[in-house]
């Protein structure tokens, strides 16, 4: 379980997060949603210790992220940010291999190689494994980064808008794979822009607005016209398709 306790954050004098307290369940796929500037990415980065905590406390499965050794944390959770400009020119397999770094510190063994092949396979990248990253499309690149996160073999996966550069088919493919990982026992937290992906795939939704938690619960509770309408300040309709809520926000 990830426990967020009284976390606040500001940049300059601008408050980004105000006094967030939150519990993210284990073994579930949790979606963070909310309008632009709600603080989703900041919350995810703080949880993944990419930014230093200013106030409050965050614990991942009991380990305080402020005091636990960063290498130990890397075995507990893997985080992927929105954009990842690389400093080096790498092949796909080389990038994914870096996911095993927390386990071998530069001296990979046979088990690491096996895990890398598994992650490549899981993300459908085996045929592309020897291509350079800069020769890939945006979607393929994104899958390569997710594969690296997978190879890390951590209990928790934290992903910031993994669907950002993907077309419909690949977006659904990635969500289906994340759901598959959840079924295999991993815990996943993902920032999503498209509310319908959250509605269809997530077990648990956390909706944020202006640095606070606006709503929290299973999709059936959060994805209602009333709740979403207040969060996004717009009128929208919610229909039920095959037992799942579907938000019509284009009309």
């Amino acid at each position: 379980m990830i426990e967020v306790q009284g976390v606040s954050h500001q940049i300059g004098k601008m408050p980004i997060l105000s006094d967030i307290t939150l519990r993210l369940p284990m073994g579930k796929l949790t979606a963070l949603i909310g309008p632009n500037g709600a603080g989703k990415s900041t919350l995810l980065s703080l949880t993944g210790r990419l930014m230093p905590l200013q106030a409050g406390q965050i614990r991942v499965d009991g380990s305080d992220i402020g005091t636990t050794d960063t290498r130990a944390l890397a075995k507990q959770m893997a985080i992927l940010s929105q954009s990842n400009p690389l400093g080096s020119r790498l092949r796909v397999r080389e990038l994914v291999s870096f996911g095993r770094w927390p386990h071998h510190q530069g001296r990979p063994g046979p088990r690491d190689a096996a895990e890398v092949e598994q992650a490549l396979h899981d993300m459908d990248l085996t045929p592309l494994a020897d291509r350079f990253l800069d020769a890939l499309s945006g979607g393929q690149r994104q899958r390569a980064f997710i594969a690296m996160t997978l190879a890390q073999g951590a209990e928790w996966l934290l992903l910031d808008e993994p669907l950002a550069a993907l077309d419909m088919a690949h977006a659904r493919g990635v969500m289906a794979r994340l759901a598959g990982l959840r079924d295999a026992g991993r815990s996943i937290v993902v920032v999503l822009h498209d509310i319908n992906h959250a509605a269809v795939w997530a077990d648990h939704i956390v909706a944020m607005k202006a640095g606070r938690i606006a709503a929290e619960g299973p999709p059936s509770q959060v994805c209602t016209a009333e709740v979403l309408g207040t969060i996004y300040d717009m009128e929208l309709r919610v229909m039920q398709v095959e037992g799942k809520p579907l938000v019509l926000h284009h009309l």
Binding site: S45, G48, R49, L50, T70, R71, A72, L73, A74, K75, M77, A78, I79, L80, S81, N84, P85, L86, G87, S88, L95, F98, G99, W101, P102, Q105, G106, R107, F145, M148, T149, Q152
Partner: peptide, 20 residues
């Protein structure tokens, strides 16, 4: 040198991989 390889991946990834 091996740690520099990870550093080259950028701060978010390097931190996620447990590099100081």
């Amino acid at each position: 040198a091996p740690r520099l390889d990870v550093l080259a991946l950028g701060r978010p990834i390097a931190v996620s991989l447990g590099l100081a």
